[in-house]
Write a protein that binds this DNA or RNA. Sequence first.
DNA 1: CTGAAAGCGCTTACAG
DNA 2: CTGAAAGCGCTTACAG
Lengths: 350, 350
Amino acid sequence: MVGMRDVAKQAGVSLSTVSLVVNNTGYVSDDMRAKVEAAMRELDYIPNELARNLYHNRTNTVGIIMPTIAHPFFATLTAALQREFASRGLKTLLCSTADTDTGESEYVGMLQRHMMDGIIMAAHTEHPADYWTAIRRPIVAFDRFLGAGVPTVHSDHEQGGRLVAQHLIRTGARHVVLAGGPRTQFADGTTFPTVRYHLTVERMLSEAGIACDYVEAGSVTDVTAHEAVARNIFERYSGVDAIVGADVVAAMALQEACRRGINVPRDLQIIAYDGTLITEIAGKRLTAVRQDFPALAAALANRMDDQIADEEASGRKPARTAKTDDADADESVIEEQVVPVAFIPGETTR
Amino acid sequence: MVGMRDVAKQAGVSLSTVSLVVNNTGYVSDDMRAKVEAAMRELDYIPNELARNLYHNRTNTVGIIMPTIAHPFFATLTAALQREFASRGLKTLLCSTADTDTGESEYVGMLQRHMMDGIIMAAHTEHPADYWTAIRRPIVAFDRFLGAGVPTVHSDHEQGGRLVAQHLIRTGARHVVLAGGPRTQFADGTTFPTVRYHLTVERMLSEAGIACDYVEAGSVTDVTAHEAVARNIFERYSGVDAIVGADVVAAMALQEACRRGINVPRDLQIIAYDGTLITEIAGKRLTAVRQDFPALAAALANRMDDQIADEEASGRKPARTAKTDDADADESVIEEQVVPVAFIPGETTR
DNA sequence: CTGAAAGCGCTTACAG
DNA sequence: CTGAAAGCGCTTACAG
């Protein structure tokens, strides 16, 4: 491997001069620069970024922790994040917990060992209350609350719930089935903002006197399990005339409805929550509440930049100390950024 | 940041002793070990992997270059690869060219700057013949030929083509439309093994006297464009009674058939090529030729391990020199590993 | 504007 | 079994 030393020797200059040329920093005479560049070319010199990273204690790499990249929701989110990060000079390390059975602790370890500059946390998790806050390195949560000092970004799920409920009320739905995460997540002090969408729908439908049942949709890591859920809905709630669930669940419900010869949307409306490409290939174009993935990604990347800048500023010491310079951060509070959603009519609603 | 030096001081031992304990290498007396471990705990010491990486000139990170992770095919492949790599202690860096408009050269640059130990190349590309072979670092190609010395892994597309053709012949198809990549890829000396599936289907159908038209399915980066393709098929080939295409195209075709009130599978059969989860949520369960993603991932990872080991063995000098030790490698030939596929009957064929 | 020196944090021969 | 020393490849004050 040819290193800077070889280039310096070949060009007859010092190491520092080569470094200045490579990084285009400070002043180098045209003469010197030419000699160095010639040497670099002759030797086919390529700087070793590892060494540079060690010096700066930075890798320009951000990890995205999610259950599995095979799920369209996370694939869509990750694509948006990768694009956003790339435009900021950051690489994306894939950390999918279900694809590796290692849980997120391994990835957190990598963060602590300085293999990454930060982590976007988008996987479910069960940890002591201070697990995340104790890490003291850049972390941004997606769609979950991880504790004070860990900023979070999520869609405006209340708005999402309102859009769904308003549509169902307006179209005269009478028996709605809502599919979502484990109902235990709905407890007070939940760490999942998504429950706001379900709760909003339930409240508004209840006020309108519309029946609303809730079923648990199963894990995102086992997409085929959704099929059984879809079947169950039809078997347990024979009067159902509207189903609301994440894209994949909605697609399964539509498929099952077709098998049973149910006319969608005349006798059954289906609304997908998320708006990934699944909505376009499910047999009919699914009506959907679409999360704004590019905007979510931009918000996540902004928070991440902040976190990384904070860490750098605080001289490689813990980022979140009491002495915040400006008043914007009450450290006992979770910084929360909310991104609007949109209602996209398709062929599965009236 | 607390470093090894701090631990050594606190424990009253030398740097090397701390290193030995941390890495569990060589012999350290229980006494010393205890002291070091105590110090590590007290100081909350976490080794900095960057430094270690610099010394070893390894990052244990492999990049996967693909058009976009948002496409279910690459999401599925990547999930399998990530799982496979993780089990071998390798991290997965996401390199999607369409999500970043940077082309793969940026990622190749990272490989050369030693930010990655190797690259899985699964994106389309147009480069001079020696572009890939000149890189001289670990590269494994997926489903494409990149040149001598770059091993490749792909499904047995001839078998895939046979399975499709046999089914169509057996069920009495009379007018088949095949959707696939740009027809220009079919030239002699193509770098795309997938054309073997199309060519096999065309040859076998032709021998059986069955009409077969070919349409270009459009880019994987623009999934919605497939919709127009699906519409076109029905408009241009009114007699079509079987459509074969990648999962997303097949799903779109099914959706369009439903809109037109065409009975699938009675009057139109649809076969999906790939077998991602799309086949399960397309309105009906799609009959599919399924690629074996876990096996493909394992094969890719094996080749990658070989490449990395070769590089290490050749003392950090170019991996592919003339002096191969055993006779297994004629360097002018592309090492090619083929993985079987399977025909999975669904609801869209007879 | 250029060079000699110290250092990023860890690892590994090599003496003792 | 332990420590002092050199080194991984690059960067950055700091003298000249």
